[in-house]
């Protein structure tokens, strides 16, 4: 692909924003914040992707989906690179992505509340003095409780609403 016919970088970002996350298809890969960079290196398009979790089983599917989406747009030479640093955090989810999650029934992450293993904070939470409330994505009630720290995929935890009684997923904060 010659320099004159190469698609513009922002055009490529737009295409990538239409590629759904394989595990939570309601949000895109760019909503999730895992595409770190898109750049031409001569005739090769280099897409840099960061994993959400080190063992995320969707990683290889994500790479395949990116490659397929770009090939469909006529880009032939593509290289995918993995970038670990800085590590992905749920804080990188876009505003739009958070709204899509909520509408889909998944409570979006609350920034700055990632587990840090600090015991004082943890014990305070156990004692019920936490002011962290996860609103139910269905009825909006903040009268909710944690069922399990892990949910149906590595990036979610399980909660239950005590008002509408529905169980729901909460996007884990890391």
């Amino acid at each position: 692909m010659s320099a004159a016919t190469r698609p513009q970088i922002d055009e490529i970002w737009r295409w990538l924003s239409q590629v759904p996350d394989p595990e939570i298809p309601v949000i895109s890969l760019t909503d999730l914040g895992i595409v770190r960079d898109v750049a031409w290196q001569d005739d090769t398009l280099v897409v840099t992707v960061t994993p959400t979790y080190s063992g995320c089983p969707a990683t290889s599917i994500i790479n395949l989906d990116i490659e397929q989406a770009l090939r469909e747009r006529g880009i032939e030479s593509i290289r995918l690179e993995r970038q670990l640093s800085p590590p992905w955090t749920s804080d990188w989810l876009t505003e739009e992505g958070r709204e899509k999650l909520r509408a889909y029934g998944i409570a979006p992450p609350i920034d700055g509340t990632a587990a840090d293993g600090r015991l004082a904070g943890r014990i305070a939470r156990l004692a019920g003095s936490s002011n962290l409330t996860i609103a139910c994505p269905r009825c909006g009630s903040t009268h909710t409780e944690k069922i399990s720290q892990f949910g149906s995929t590595p990036c979610k935890a399980s909660y239950r609403c005590k008002d509408c009684l529905e169980p729901f997923d909460y996007f884990k904060c890391i």
Binding site: P51, Y53, S54, L84, P87, T89, A114, I174
Partner: peptide, 27 residues
Amino acid sequence: DPRVAEIAAKAEKEVAYHLERSADLVI
């Protein structure tokens, strides 16, 4: 070694989450 540092920074977040859970359950 920057390669060691970046793997550790990635793993630390997951390990913190594990510790939170295992400590809660031990208690």
